[in-house]
Deep mutational scan, measured.
Amino acid sequence: WIARINAAVRAYGLNYSTFINGLKKAGIELDRKILADMAVRDPQAFEQVVNKVKEALQV
């Protein structure tokens, strides 16, 4: 799951650890299995999560 998430978030200019930190700051409580599945099956929803994380990180 970690490898999938890392590959997906790198397309948005983040790395895995920064993304996970941003999830916590944004108050998003999705587990890694769901995030990895979302990255593959629903990229639009995953992009929305990434955008919320970037807002929380102020990137």
Rank of each mutant, 00 (worst) to 15 (best):
Trp1Ser: 15
Ile2Met: 03
Ile2Trp: 15
Ile2Phe: 10
Ala3Ile: 06
Ala3Val: 05
Ala3Arg: 09
Ala3Gly: 05
Ala3Gln: 14
Ala3Met: 03
Ala3Lys: 15
Arg4Gly: 02
Arg4Cys: 15
Arg4Asp: 14
Arg4Tyr: 04
Arg4Lys: 14
Ile5Asn: 00
Ile5Met: 04
Asn6Leu: 02
Asn6Ile: 02
Asn6His: 03
Asn6Asp: 15
Ala7Lys: 14
Ala7Trp: 04
Ala7Ser: 08
Ala7Phe: 07
Ala8Leu: 03
Ala8Glu: 03
Ala8Gln: 04
Val9Trp: 00
Val9Arg: 00
Val9Leu: 12
Val9Cys: 08
Val9Asn: 00
Val9Glu: 00
Val9Pro: 00
Arg10Lys: 14
Arg10Ser: 14
Ala11Thr: 12
Tyr12Cys: 03
Tyr12Ile: 02
Tyr12Val: 03
Gly13Thr: 01
Gly13Lys: 04
Gly13Phe: 03
Gly13Glu: 04
Leu14Asn: 00
Leu14Cys: 04
Asn15Thr: 11
Asn15Gln: 05
Tyr16Ser: 03
Tyr16Glu: 01
Tyr16Phe: 04
Thr18Asn: 07
Thr18Arg: 13
Thr18Pro: 02
Phe19Arg: 00
Phe19Trp: 02
Phe19Leu: 04
Phe19Asn: 00
Ile20Gly: 03
Ile20Pro: 00
Ile20Asn: 06
Ile20Met: 15
Ile20Gln: 05
Asn21Glu: 10
Asn21Met: 10
Asn21Ser: 14
Asn21Gly: 08
Asn21Phe: 10
Asn21His: 13
Gly22Phe: 03
Gly22Thr: 03
Leu23His: 01
Leu23Val: 08
Leu23Cys: 10
Leu23Lys: 01
Leu23Gly: 02
Lys24Thr: 06
Lys24Gly: 08
Lys24Val: 11
Lys25Cys: 11
Lys25Glu: 13
Lys25Gln: 11
Lys25His: 11
Lys25Ala: 12
Ala26Thr: 14
Ala26Trp: 03
Ala26Gly: 07
Ala26Phe: 03
Ala26Asp: 01
Ala26Cys: 09
Gly27Glu: 04
Gly27Phe: 07
Gly27Cys: 06
Gly27Arg: 06
Ile28His: 04
Ile28Met: 14
Ile28Cys: 10
Ile28Lys: 02
Ile28Thr: 04
Ile28Arg: 03
Glu29Ala: 14
Glu29Ile: 13
Leu30Ser: 07
Leu30Pro: 11
Leu30Cys: 15
Asp31Trp: 08
Asp31Ala: 15
Asp31Gln: 14
Asp31Tyr: 10
Asp31His: 15
Asp31Leu: 13
Asp31Ser: 13
Asp31Lys: 14
Arg32Val: 15
Arg32Asn: 15
Arg32Met: 15
Arg32Thr: 14
Lys33Cys: 13
Ile34Gly: 10
Ile34Thr: 12
Ile34Tyr: 14
Ile34Ala: 10
Ile34Glu: 08
Ile34Gln: 05
Leu35Gln: 02
Leu35Asn: 01
Leu35Pro: 00
Leu35Tyr: 05
Leu35Asp: 01
Ala36Tyr: 14
Ala36Pro: 05
Ala36Glu: 01
Ala36His: 08
Asp37Met: 12
Asp37Gln: 07
Asp37Gly: 09
Met38Gln: 08
Met38Lys: 03
Met38Tyr: 07
Ala39Asp: 04
Ala39Lys: 03
Ala39Leu: 08
Ala39Val: 06
Ala39Met: 09
Val40Glu: 15
Val40Trp: 12
Val40Gln: 10
Val40Cys: 15
Arg41Ala: 13
Arg41Asp: 13
Arg41Leu: 14
Arg41Trp: 07
Arg41Gln: 14
Asp42Leu: 14
Asp42Val: 10
Asp42Asn: 12
Asp42Tyr: 06
Asp42Glu: 11
Pro43Phe: 11
Pro43Glu: 06
Pro43Thr: 11
Pro43Trp: 06
Gln44Trp: 13
Gln44Phe: 12
Gln44Gly: 12
Gln44Pro: 12
Gln44Arg: 08
Gln44Ser: 07
Gln44Cys: 14
Gln44Tyr: 07
Ala45Gln: 09
Ala45His: 10
Phe46Gln: 00
Phe46Trp: 08
Phe46Cys: 03
Glu47His: 05
Glu47Pro: 01
Glu47Leu: 12
Glu47Phe: 07
Glu47Lys: 11
Glu47Trp: 04
Glu47Ile: 06
Gln48Cys: 13
Val49Leu: 09
Val49Met: 09
Val49His: 04
Val49Gln: 03
Val49Ala: 03
Val50Asn: 00
Val50Arg: 01
Asn51Gln: 06
Asn51Pro: 00
Asn51Thr: 11
Asn51Glu: 11
Asn51Met: 11
Asn51Leu: 11
Asn51Gly: 08
Lys52Asp: 06
Lys52Ser: 06
Lys52Pro: 01
Val53Ser: 07
Val53Trp: 01
Val53Leu: 04
Val53Thr: 04
Val53Asn: 00
Lys54Gln: 14
Lys54Ser: 06
Lys54Asn: 05
Lys54Leu: 10
Glu55Val: 14
Ala56Val: 08
Ala56Arg: 08
Ala56Leu: 08
Leu57Asp: 04
Leu57Ala: 08
Leu57Thr: 09
Leu57Gly: 05
Gln58Met: 06
Gln58Tyr: 08
Val59Ala: 12
Val59Trp: 06
Val59Gly: 09
